[in-house]
């Protein structure tokens, strides 16, 4: 049992129209840890992560039941501002998506939306975010350059810096390294391990070795259900459920 979890998901179900996509999922995400969600394509892992910050509501016809508690408060409860939730739960997507503007403006974008206009404060926040994303040394002399001039791996770290700029409490990453080469992947993974002491991280990944390398806990999903949720070492060394064993060993029958 996780004491004082950062996020608690209780009987969460999501359907797109009449099609159920998540079925009664319950799990707890500990603070300052990396939680990985794995499973085959179509299992519902991306839907789960989007449900954690109410992005799933942007899908036409999406219906959500159950609870997602952030620090004990249901983010789907009455009076909760979804924009504020999305500020607290930053998200990074599979394909790096820097805005078509300068490196500096990418990181400052969210801060300006929140009303931060003071130039010196913006400069400081941009620098801090790029440092936290391990990108400062590579970009400090070219902040005015277009972000699209960066390599794929750098763009993804820029997206992480952009997410970090608004000081989220949680970072949600949906296959953040799947479009990156091995070295860029290693740098992103290293970054996540450095960040977890400051921000709770939930990571969806197809790459089981990545889940093993970076995460503290792992959940295995199949056909919309959370089949198993356990310490990463335990789940990958000796899973409790046969379906988990079959998936991670690549077996059928």
């Amino acid at each position: 049992m996780v004491m004082d979890p950062k996020i608690e998901v209780k009987e969460l179900s999501v359907s797109y129209g009449s099609k159920p996509v998540l079925k009664h999922v319950s799990l707890t995400v500990p603070r300052e840890e990396i939680t990985a969600i794995i499973g085959p394509s179509g299992c519902g892992k991306s839907t789960l992560i989007k449900a954690l910050n109410r992005m799933v509501e942007l899908v036409p016809g999406a219906k959500v039941t159950g609870q997602v508690l952030l620090d004990g408060r249901d983010i789907y409860g009455p009076g909760i501002d979804p924009v504020e939730i999305r500020r607290k739960m930053g998200m990074v997507f599979q394909k790096p998506n820097p805005f078509p503007m300068s490196i500096y403006d990418n990181v400052a974008f969210g801060l300006r939306i929140l009303g931060l206009g003071d130039r010196r404060k913006l400069d400081k926040s941009v620098e801090e975010s790029l440092i936290r994303a391990n990108l400062w040394e590579e970009t400090k002399d070219r902040l005015k350059e277009n972000a699209l001039s960066l390599s794929g791996g750098q763009q993804q770290r820029l997206c992480i810096a952009r997410a970090l700029a608004t000081h989220p409490e949680v970072l949600l990453l949906d296959e953040p390294a799947s479009a990156l080469d091995p070295i860029s992947t290693a740098r992103v993974e290293d970054l996540l391990k450095d960040l977890k002491s400051e921000v709770t991280i939930v990571l969806v990944t197809h790459n089981m070795q990545q889940a093993i390398r970076v995460s503290d806990r792992t959940g295995f999903m199949l056909l919309g259900e959370l089949v198993e949720f356990n310490g990463t070492a335990k789940l990958f060394e000796h899973p409790s459920d046969e379906r988990t064993e079959a998936y991670i060993t690549g077996k059928f029958g």
């Binding site: 089981m208 070795q209 093993i212 990958f236 060394e237 000796h238 899973p239 988990t244 064993e245 991670i248 060993t249």
Partner: peptide, 9 residues
Amino acid sequence: MQPLAGDLR
């Protein structure tokens, strides 16, 4: 093969 679980054991 980067085996896991029963295969790794």
